[in-house]
Design a binder for these strands. Sequence first.
DNA 1: CAAAAATTTTAATCTGGATTAAAATACGGC
DNA 2: GCCGTATTTTAATCCAGATTAAAATTTTTG
Lengths: 196, 196
Amino acid sequence: MARSSDETRFQLQRDRMLRAAAQCFNLKGYSGTSLKDVANLLGLTDAALYYYVRNKEELVYQCYLRAADVAQEAMLRAIDDGANGLEQVRLYIRYHIELIVGETGPLAIMSEIPSLTPAHRDEILQRSRAHSKNFEALLERGIADGSIAPCDVRMTGNAIMGALNWIPKWFHGDEKVAARLLEQFPTILSAGLAVR
Amino acid sequence: MARSSDETRFQLQRDRMLRAAAQCFNLKGYSGTSLKDVANLLGLTDAALYYYVRNKEELVYQCYLRAADVAQEAMLRAIDDGANGLEQVRLYIRYHIELIVGETGPLAIMSEIPSLTPAHRDEILQRSRAHSKNFEALLERGIADGSIAPCDVRMTGNAIMGALNWIPKWFHGDEKVAARLLEQFPTILSAGLAVR
DNA sequence: CAAAAATTTTAATCTGGATTAAAATACGGC
DNA sequence: GCCGTATTTTAATCCAGATTAAAATTTTTG
């Protein structure tokens, strides 16, 4: 067993699988996509996927986990790079979209959490809520530092995150659209936040 | 056969069914919800649903059709009631949310169009696109009449509609939240549009 | 190159859930 | 209360797709 190089190979394939799965799930939903759909996208047989994952439920779970990791990374970078709340919000939106439309994508949108195992569901829900809280914290920071006008951070967060979460529903890899998305969305979604 | 009264009864039950189905679909997705899930919510047996619909696919189709009708109604009322583009946009958002959280709701979010029959898919896609175009037209009207600052109407439309479409994912009938949603969202989503 | 480990396929099984037909019940009109 | 229609249930059938075990193939290592 070749230590690090084998692990890399395994992990690479596994990652390809998760991206393929995310693409299918975003298109036809969890139960709507068969393992065969995912396998075909990889040029494999459905049974082969079981080498990488215990069962279908775990496949979604891993997809959601991956999406959560990536979103969190965007959040951390935004907090690092932004000078004030408003900038951090805008950067988070940008980084998040970059990850969706870029190499890491497609990311699974967490739209069928109820289908998960109780344990997995709890974990994903917790991370999801934590992420929302973090985003709301950015808004509050902005209000505190004067870069964002006072607002209902909960609802504002829901609105912005909703617009972001919906992207995979209509974006399907077109480069032109990706560029436009990246250029427009951060501005559009943060335009209403700034103090007048 | 009692003419109009029986038809009413039938249609009432049918409508209850569509709302129950929409609720299930929004929660667990199309393939993720069994007909039994929907039937249980109505206190019926799964087989009973076949009295109202030919098969499961038609159930989704009807749900989507209903959602399209309702959204269109919101659009028409907004166009009637708004004095300029910006007002019409704001009113559309408000009316749309009123319908989602009110008596007519829950409405199915059209997130699994690929699962439909080709014929049904085409019809729903066409209506969906038409609706998007109508919304973009509101934005253009606003830009023309000076109430909305120039912007990429396509992307702006995607952002706003995304935020709206995502609502059923996190709103689950809480009255308090409904009120807050109704009060905040129209403002939040149109805050960035007005000319400075 | 040969052996061992890693990866994938083949070929079954198993199951949930869609679908259907026939039977049972509810319900309005008379 | 009785009849005919509307609605629902019961009791099968049927199938796609998940899952598994064993065999085949590919890759890695020495």
